Amino acid sequence: MASLIGHDAELQAKNYLLANSLQFVEQNYKAKVGEIDLIMLDEQQLVFVEVKFRSSNSHGSAAEHFTVSKRRKLERVINYYLLQKKLNPHHTNFRLDVVAIDGEQVNWIQNV
């Protein structure tokens, strides 16, 4: 059940970003070091997106569940992705965004 909810949240986030002029590149990129929910393109910039969903705020908002340790883990996955695609991390334009979904409210936090 949780994975179905996660998939629905990722689909909602993807559609939200598409409606805001981003282009879809890849979903659920998996590496030995972790996973990236969505990879999008904002003009010439790669956007790696972490999707967080909470049906209620009783245990904090979705955005509050994006932790420093989660960020570090995602940075390792991003570096792995760039190396796999033969893109130099120092010369590739990219950013990390969070799409936090609290019930029906979508909060797109850019460049976290």
Results as ranks from 00 to 15, higher is better:
Glu104Leu: 13
Arg71Gly: 02
Ser55Gln: 12
Ala9Glu: 10
Arg54Gln: 14
Gln12Leu: 11
Val47Ala: 01
Lys86Val: 03
Val33Ile: 06
Leu18Arg: 12
Val68Gln: 12
Ala62Trp: 05
Ser69Gly: 01
Lys85Glu: 03
Ala13Tyr: 13
Leu38Trp: 14
Gln110Tyr: 04
Val77Phe: 05
Lys73Ile: 08
Asn111Ile: 07
Phe24Trp: 10
Lys70Ile: 09
Val33Gly: 02
Leu83Glu: 10
Ile36Leu: 12
Ile109Ser: 03
Leu22Pro: 01
Asn93Ser: 13
Ala19Met: 12
Val25Tyr: 03
Gln44Thr: 11
Ala100Cys: 10
Ser56His: 13
Ser69Tyr: 05
Leu87Phe: 14
Phe66Leu: 00
Ser58Thr: 14
Leu83Asn: 10
Glu26Cys: 10
Leu38Gln: 07
Lys85Gln: 03
Val51Gln: 07
Leu46Val: 00
Ala19Arg: 15
Leu22Ile: 02
Glu50Val: 00
Ile5Tyr: 10
Ala13Ile: 11
Glu35Thr: 11
Gly6Trp: 05
Ala100His: 09
Lys70Tyr: 07
Lys30Met: 02
Leu11Ile: 06
Ser58Cys: 12
Gln23Ile: 06
Lys70Val: 06
Leu82Gly: 00
Glu50Asp: 07
Met40Gly: 04
Gln44Ala: 13
Phe94Trp: 15
Ile109Asp: 09
Asn107Gln: 14
Val106Tyr: 10
Asn57Pro: 04
Val77Pro: 05
His91Arg: 14
Asn111Ala: 14
Thr92Ser: 01
Gln23Asp: 10
Glu26Gly: 06
Ile39Glu: 09
Leu38Asp: 11
Ser69Asn: 04
Ile109Val: 15
Leu82Ile: 00
Leu46Trp: 00
Ala13Val: 10
His7Ala: 04
Ala19Lys: 15
Pro89Ala: 09
Lys86Ile: 09
Asp42Tyr: 12
Gln105Asn: 11
Gln12Ser: 11
Asn88Thr: 08
Asn79His: 13
Asp37Ile: 04
Arg95Ser: 09
Val51Leu: 02
Leu83His: 14
Ser61Glu: 08
Ile5Cys: 05
Arg95Lys: 15
Asn88Val: 07
Val99Met: 01
Phe24Ile: 02
Glu50Thr: 01
Asn93His: 13
Ala100Ile: 09
Lys14Ser: 10
Val25Gly: 00
Gln105Ala: 12
Pro89Ser: 14
Leu22Cys: 01
Ser56Pro: 03
Tyr29Pro: 01
Val49Glu: 01
Arg54Thr: 06
Gln12Pro: 02
Ala2Asn: 11
Val51Trp: 06
Val25Leu: 03
Arg54Tyr: 06
Asn79Ile: 04
Gly6Phe: 05
Phe24Met: 10
Gly60Leu: 08
Leu18Gly: 04
Met1Asn: 07
His7Gly: 01
Ile5Met: 11
Asp8Thr: 07
Ile101Trp: 06
Ala62Pro: 02
